[in-house]
Design a protein around this nucleic acid. Structure first.
Lengths: 185, 185
DNA sequence: ATGCGCATGTAAAGTGTTACATGATTTG
DNA sequence: CAAATCATGTAACACTTTACATGCGCAT
């Protein structure tokens, strides 16, 4: 289960609460392994029962109590073992592409709107990645050196987003010029 | 549920047995929405109960009997309605990137082997895509015109594979030069 | 007053993966 | 003689998503 190991990997870098982890997910691993808060809390419970993480309960009066999780030696061992095991390949899954595949059944205008919406999402994602890059890596050779592998995952994300954006231009050109062709299906 | 609609989209292009669909999955939609045979058969059963597909039972003496499925008007309506509905975005999920993220915990050599294996897979996938392109689209302007949207999904797949391959070169350079840096974590 | 941030969870429903199961015919 | 192709499925398990649930403090 990859999510477990994603959580372990994040705790290994720095302990934190479930809430913290969710935020950190959105800034790093979430780029290639999204998780909801429900999943994170459940995973932390499971890992805790398995003894791979432990937590310190911090009682707060002004805010809700919180549990600060950290990885145990058993967790670290598990993480190392998993990292050394061949990774399964996972296929990309995107409903948008199924829609496009089936797109001959609807008027091209419907697709164009949806594509444009997704193009904007990818544009925003790329902007976020670039911001992260500027913030953490661009002007800090030491951080770049230390977190070179997380940085490489960010770079791959940027390349994917750039591929998306190039592709959208191409598709838009096709849809603009193909109103007639779509009608014959 | 996207898989349902992927199946409907394929049947809309051409009727076929579950077995046929699985093969066609591997050649087209499977690039961005993989499915196992169990999933396809179950989906066909569900769609059949819902009246969105129907099948003709063909008894064969030399081979097992088969069911040739085709889309019904209710199925076509459902497919159109779904295609006209805004698509959800789906995030990329890849355990390999989690491994890389956690890669500071193991010797770089371990990662290199795994990365190389995956690089080869992506190289093979790109070769398959290019073969499909040559076979169906390159020399047949009419097919290219008619199946322009499926063709565009193939093109996106090729761009992703190319991005992967470029990225692998970069990561390899990093891992080759970073044996010392990994040891300090 | 409305919503956001903090902080945690349970439960049910929906999807996907893995294991098990069969059996004839064709190809190397 | 082993493996691949044809052709279909059931069952159990694992994982993800969605809905429901709470409650205080702070800013607009």
């Amino acid at each position: 289960m990859s999510l477990k190991h994603a959580v372990l990997a994040m705790l290994e870098l720095e302990p934190g609460t479930g809430y913290d982890l969710i935020k950190r997910f959105n800034k790093s691993i979430g780029h290639f392994w999204a998780a909801t808060h429900q999943q994170v809390y459940q995973t932390l419970n499971t890992l805790s029962e398995e003894g791979r993480v432990e937590f310190e309960l911090v009682e707060q009066s002004d805010k809700p109590n919180k549990k600060i999780y950290s990885i145990t030696s058993a967790g670290l061992e598990e993480l190392r073992a998993w990292t050394a095991t061949p990774a399964k390949s996972y296929r990309y899954r995107d409903p948008l592409l199924i829609k496009l595949y089936a797109g001959g059944n609807v008027a091209p205008g419907i697709l164009v709107g949806d594509l444009e919406k997704h193009r904007q999402l990818h544009e925003q994602t790329l902007a976020d990645y670039r911001e992260t890059e500027a913030l953490y890596y661009r002007n800090d050779p030491e951080a770049r050196q230390r977190y070179i592998l997380p940085y490489m995952t960010l770079k791959l994300g940027m390349q994917f987003e750039e591929a998306w954006l190039r592709w959208y231009e191409e598709v838009r050109g096709v849809l603009d010029g193909t109103d007639g062709a779509a009608a014959d299906r």
